[in-house]
Every structure is written in C-alpha cells, then in structure tokens.
Design a protein around this nucleic acid. Structure first.
Lengths: 328, 328
DNA sequence: GAAAATCCGGAACACGTTTTCCTGCACGAA
DNA sequence: TTCGTGCAGGAAAACGTGTTCCGGATTTTC
C-alpha cells in the first residue's frame, strides 16, 4: 500500500488515461462534462491530492518563495514575515523560512539551499534600516525593511522621514513650541534619519540637539533628567522608539510632571506591549510592517510574473494618537 | 539560454553519461577517482546546483517540513520556530511556515497545501498550553507547546509544574514564609496548572488563594493592592508571567515597599523586555522554548526516519535568579 | 593462453505531473 | 457516398534526478 494515490490510480478507477484525468481535474482540454465528473468522483473517492513535486517539475516553477532574515526574533521581521506569508498563501505559494542569525556563512548556506530548491523568488529582510549588500542569485529578489545598497534592486522600506514629520506636525498642531528629540545610538541608520527628519520638521520649535543614547527605557528615563536640566522650557518630547518613550513617561511621572499637560510625549513603532502599557498610553508611529510584508510579497509575485519594476519603494507610516499627547 | 545547468549539461561537458555524473557528484557507485574529479570540475565550471525537485521526486522525499502555528506573532511560537528551523537546517531540511491565525478554514487550507507538497513531516504549535485537537494527515506530526488531546500523539511540552516548583523552593530557601500567587485568567490552562503547582509546592507557606486576573501589568499593579489588604504579612509574590510581575514591582515601589527586602517577586517566561526592564530585574522561569523547538524538530526527524516514539514529553524549565528575589 | 574475477561506465527506467500532438469517431453538407 | 469539420480522449514526451542492472574492458589466476 503506497501512502498517497497518484493520478494514474484516479485515471484507472475512472477508466480513462492519465492525461485525461489531468485535464479533467485541471479544467483544461476538451472533455465531456460527464467524463470530468466521473474523474472528479474517482479522485474524491481515493482522497487524491496532486503531488506538487511532479507539478513543479513539469511546470518549471516550484510555487515556493524563500524568506531570508538576519534575525527573525526581532520584532520588526515578524510582522513582515506574517504579511508576506499572508499575501503569498493567497497565491498558493509556500514560504520557506531561513534565519541567518547574522552569520554570512549561514546566509550562503541558505542561499544555496534555496537556489537548489528552485525557489521562484526570494525576500530578504533584516532588523535594521541600514542598507545591506545585495545577494547574488539568478532569481527575482525583493528587499524589505533593509534595502539593498544597489539602487536598481527592488526594495520596500519605511518612510521614517514622513513618520517623524507627521509626529512633529501633530505636536505643533497641539500648540507645543519646544520639542525635544530623544532617540537611539547615532550609529543606527534609523536613529539618524529620524533625528534629521525631526529637526527639519520642528524648525524653530526644536528644543536643543537630538539626544542619542540606547534603545531602552533606562535611557529614556535618564534623558529626561538631562533634558529638564538643559532645556527647562521643553513642552514636548518626540522619542525614537516606544521603549524610550515609556522610560520618558515613567521618569516624568516620578518627577511629578504631567503627561501630556506639562509635556507631551510621542513614541515610535506602535509596539503594543510598550505603547499600551505605558502610563499614559503612547501616541506613536505605526510602521505598518505587515502591510510592508504584503507589498513586498506582491512585488515579488509581479517580478516572478515578469514585471520589471525596480528601485526603492517607500511606504507611508500611520500616526496613532493616544493619551500621551491628547490627554484624557 | 536556460537559467540553470542540468546534470546532463555537466555530464556532456565531462564527456560521460548522466548516470555517471550523478554517481560522481553523490560519491556513490564505482568510478575511477579521475572520472569523479573530471565531473566535479565540470560541475564547478558550470556552477551546477542540483535541482532538488528532481531529487525529491526520485527519492520519494521532499526534504521539507511544515510548521503550522495558530499565532506566529505570539512570543512563544517564535523561539520555537527558531529552534526548529535551526535543528532542521542542520539536516538539510527546509521549513515552510504556515500561520493559521486561529482560523480552522486556513488550517485546513494549509494542511492540504502541505500534504500536496508531500512534506516529510509537520510540526504543530500554538500560543496556549491548552491541548488541541489533533490534525489528520498521513504524515508524521509532532506537537510543540500545545500538546495534542490524543495521548498517543507525540507532543513536546513545558514542565510548568516543575517550573513553579523550582520558583517556590527558591523563595522558601530564601526564608520567605508567606508566598502569594498572582496569575492570569483561570480560563487559561497554563494559569490553572501554574497555580496548582504553586499551591502544592508552597504548602503551609501559601498566602491566600491564587489570584486570577489578566496577563497584564495593570492587573499586577491592582493585585498588589488586593494582596496588601487581604494578606498584609505576605513576603513573596510569585507571578504567572513577567508582565504581571513587572506590574507588581512597579506598584510595590510606588507604595514604598522594597523589592526584595520587604517582598520578593518572581515572574514567569523570562521575556527579556519585561524581565530586564523591570525595576528591579526579575527572577523568572525560562521555558527554554528554543530548546523545545530543537527537541521537537529532532523528534520529528526521528519519526520521519521511522522511529516510533510517541506520547507527551515534558521538558524542564530553568530558573533565572535576579535582583527581584536576591537583592543587589 | 584461457577462464574467472574485478572494475568502470552506460542504457533504461522510475518518480508524478502537464502538455503537445495525434487518432478515432460522429455528424453535417455537397 | 464522400469529404470536411469538430469533438473526445489517448499515447508519448518532457521536466531533472537517482538507481538498478548489465555489458565491455581490464586485470588476475591457474
């Protein structure tokens, strides 16, 4: 007893040739409706599921795409993966997961494995917005979140510049006039970009230079002390991450400053476990990473289908307003 | 120009038959070393990578396993995925990701897809420890984290009982005599199991019945108020999650109670963003989910190879001690 | 020097599907 | 009656690899 019935078994049961069975099940070729139905019933009866390996071989496609991530435990990669998987599964594509753990050797290993599987396309993603070296494969590739350093490659990235702009405009529209910016290390591309965008959008309302530190609550708390000493008139703090913003809120509360009455605070990431648990809940920027994953997957599907769009694509962010700027 | 050279191209370049080329590249059959080398050089020159679809068809295996998760955004599924992927990639197996989003329809869809791909095995995981209905496929299956309701299926689960026991013993060894337990909703299997294990291990040192609420910092903060009113002599609080424990610490600090001098606090999960950001950092239970993923994958590999282990397997947890019980 | 053992490599087939081409057959029109 | 037309379904090849079996060539043995 073989585990799974083949199409020849179905054909035999229905009393037709395998080619006929194939046509019947795929609604192709010229067949009498009665024959089609007979084959369908036979397939049903046997519990036949076509072997996609055979199909893959015959069609020249594998209906599979690879996802290479440098760090899938990062909270950025995960929504991207999910979005991509969602968009792909709708097109009957499977997604094989490869976590390189930032090891170039592992990356090579995985690339070889994906090429050997004749994957139809590859998505490359990482946890940093810093551009990364492109991969060299004879297969369509789309980069997500971390763009390729080659501007001719297809990359889908977050419009951090716009995200910070909308935050600052929100603060200005609330009447804030002294806006400070607290963010991560300036060795991080995203921290630099966000700081520059904030400076640009705030204009005269900027309170001091952006403060660079770690992506941590502790740094947020510490930055408040620095800020109140150097910029006592500050009335809004735009943070480069929700973790920092939460630390900022905690410290302000400890010092008896009201958020947002005395000082409005905004975060970045819309990481719910930070943004919602913060007291008060954070106004923040949602990077819409799941949507980014979906767009990436769809661009890849287009590329597989032969379309030849290329170059980077910046996706808009969404400002989520909550009590940390609006009050109750 | 075809995109990828086939083994026949290699054979032609080396001046041998395809079967000979196959043997040369796979170190099988009887060939002169010189012939082997010639074929290898030809393959190298053409940049030949064997097409695993052909190999899959011929060998009857696909060298692929499916991972079905009800919620891959959950922080439990992710380390499991990573561990599994790690163990599988070592065996040249690829992992295809299927996130059902708790939708039975999607689950059916994915199962069909995996069966059609002739996956060698399937890992089923979820975000709850509640046993789940088994899936019905003619393929080896191993359940991770969420066991199957069928005790004959192979499941790898966390020893929550032991985890709580070690926590309570740790607190007792520090001389604590009034231990309370604050945890999630009693509709959650894990909350019930952890509560029961804590009660059992604490014995006479238990301070009141376990308090059930939400898995949130807010509930942790609120529970402190309840606890100090009803159990004023409490000197240790064992929490069912790090989120709850962090809320507990925050509230105790606000009330001027010292952790751990007045009251020791322990968490569960070793979720670093909670456990390390808490003030003070949390003593907590690490469920070692990545290891669980690895074990699951290895059990699945065994099952694919024909071994017939079955039944549930409980993996030990690890107690991580930090300032919230030890002090500085 | 002939028979046997050994070594090397090729032909053919299997895996499961899709697709192209081709052959009957029925039917209508001249 | 004959020819063309169109439909229903079958035979065979293709996709790329691995494996089994077999025959020729070389070496060994008596």
């Amino acid at each position: 007893m073989r585990s799974q019935p083949r199409i020849t078994d179905v054909a035999a049961l229905a009393g037709v040739a395998t080619s006929t069975a194939s046509k019947a099940l795929n609604d192709t070729g010229q067949l009498r409706e009665e024959t089609r139905e007979r084959v369908r019933r036979a397939a049903e009866q046997l519990g036949f599921t076509p072997d996609s390996r055979g199909r893959a071989l015959s069609s020249g496609r594998s209906f599979t795409v690879g996802l290479i991530t440098t760090d899938s435990s990062g909270r950025f990669s995960i929504p991207i993966m999910l979005g991509a998987e969602d968009a792909l599964s709708a097109g009957e594509m499977a997604l094989v997961l490869c976590d390189t753990r930032d090891d170039p050797l592992r990356e090579q290993h995985y690339l070889k494995s994906l090429v050997s599987r004749r994957v139809d396309g590859i998505i490359v993603t990482g946890r940093r917005t810093e551009p990364r070296a492109p991969i060299d494969v004879p297969i369509p590739v789309v980069y997500a979140f971390s763009p390729s350093t080659d501007p001719d490659d297809t990359s889908v990235i977050v419009d951090d510049h716009g995200g910070c702009g909308s935050t600052v405009r929100h603060l200005l529209s609330l009447g804030r006039q002294r806006i400070a910016h607290v963010t991560g290390p300036d060795s991080h591309h995203s921290a630099r970009v966000r700081a520059a965008a904030t400076v640009e959008a705030a204009g005269d309302a900027l309170a001091g230079e952006p403060l660079h530190g770690e992506w941590s609550e502790r740094w947020g708390r510490h930055a408040v002390d620095v800020l109140l000493r150097t910029q006592p008139s500050v009335d809004a703090i735009s943070c480069g991450s929700d973790q920092i913003a939460r630390g900022v809120c905690d410290r302000l509360r400890e010092l008896g400053r009201s958020v947002p009455d005395d000082i409005a605070v905004s975060g970045y990431d819309n990481w719910s476990v930070m943004a919602l648990a913060s007291r008060p809940p954070l106004t923040t920027v949602d990077m819409q990473l799941e949507e980014l994953g979906r767009r990436t997957a769809n661009l890849l599907l287009d590329a597989i289908a032969g379309s030849t769009h290329s170059g980077p694509l910046e996706l808009p962010t969404r400002l989520i307003t909550r009590e940390s700027t609006l009050g109750t």
